[in-house]
Nucleic acid binder design. Structure first.
Lengths: 142, 142
DNA sequence: AATAATAATTGGAATAGTTCTTGATATTGA
DNA sequence: TCAATATCAAGAACTATTCCAATTATTATT
């Protein structure tokens, strides 16, 4: 007899529309999963997980949903090297620390009041639309 | 009658060995090209360019050469989103600014004396091996 | 210099993540 | 209700990269 792992979080309610994007059943479940499992899953991981609730969903649809959510600024797409894209619902400007030992990805926030131009020699006239910071290393067992 | 574009730079001399890596003809030309054309070419762009001098070189060999050079710390591999990897001979710790209008990639240096931990809330105990900073935006015509 | 051992190169096949295409299904608006 | 539009599913297609097996080049040893 197979028993499903219990949902750790109470059901997250998701409205019928977010930022102008209609929440279909598929988009809703994809988004809900990202909210609940904040370990930056790949499209395929999302696919496997969401199948619990929508057994007929296809991988192509997961890609479609993820793209729609990214396009509407509801989630973020994160890339490490040329590995599979990963997705996260943390919209605040942040970077990522990739623990080489465990593979776990930690969100890394900016300290308040930090200005990129204080830190980097930007090309003159540069207007920054998007910043991507990725760190790789180890967590010394504290 | 086809005339080759003249080499802008005088021939760059490359020793028989760099950081313990034997410089074969193929590796030498790949490396020379990266030194001369500092526009962060892709493997395929390197391939097409290097063919001028080594008409029989294969794309697989270009990939092999690039990997060997990266492995020995002679060049760096740079990834933007999930686009083709690009390669650059600038070894100093630096980031990249990607001009959305022109597609041109500019190297961006750190201001002297900047410490990552001053700027980011790193996870406690994090030891950083590698930093990757990518900016995307536009260059306001100065 | 000849030979054996090792390393590098080539060309094509294989792989993996993602995108595209087509037909079916659902939703919205008139 | 009907037409127009959007979304979905399934699998084919695409692309950057890696792998593989056979050949060629280089190095070390006699």
């Amino acid at each position: 007899m197979v028993s499903k792992a219990p949902d750790i979080f109470p059901e997250i309610e998701i409205p019928d529309e977010i930022s102008g994007l209609r929440m279909t059943a598929q988009r809703r479940e994809v988004y809900r999963l990202l909210q609940q499992e904040r370990n930056h899953p790949t499209a395929n991981e999302v696919f496997m997980r969401v199948k619990d609730r929508l057994p007929n969903i296809s991988l192509a649809t997961v890609y479609n949903c993820l793209e729609a959510l990214v396009q509407h600024g509801i989630i973020r797409q994160v890339n490490f090297e040329r590995e599979s894209s990963r997705y996260c619902p943390n919209l605040s400007e942040h970077g990522h620390f990739h623990d080489a030992a465990t593979g776990v990805i930690h969100d890394v926030d900016f300290k308040p009041g930090v200005n990129l131009a204080d830190v980097l020699n930007l090309p003159p006239g540069a207007v920054i639309d998007d910043v991507e910071i990725t760190l790789r290393g180890k967590l010394a067992s504290a």
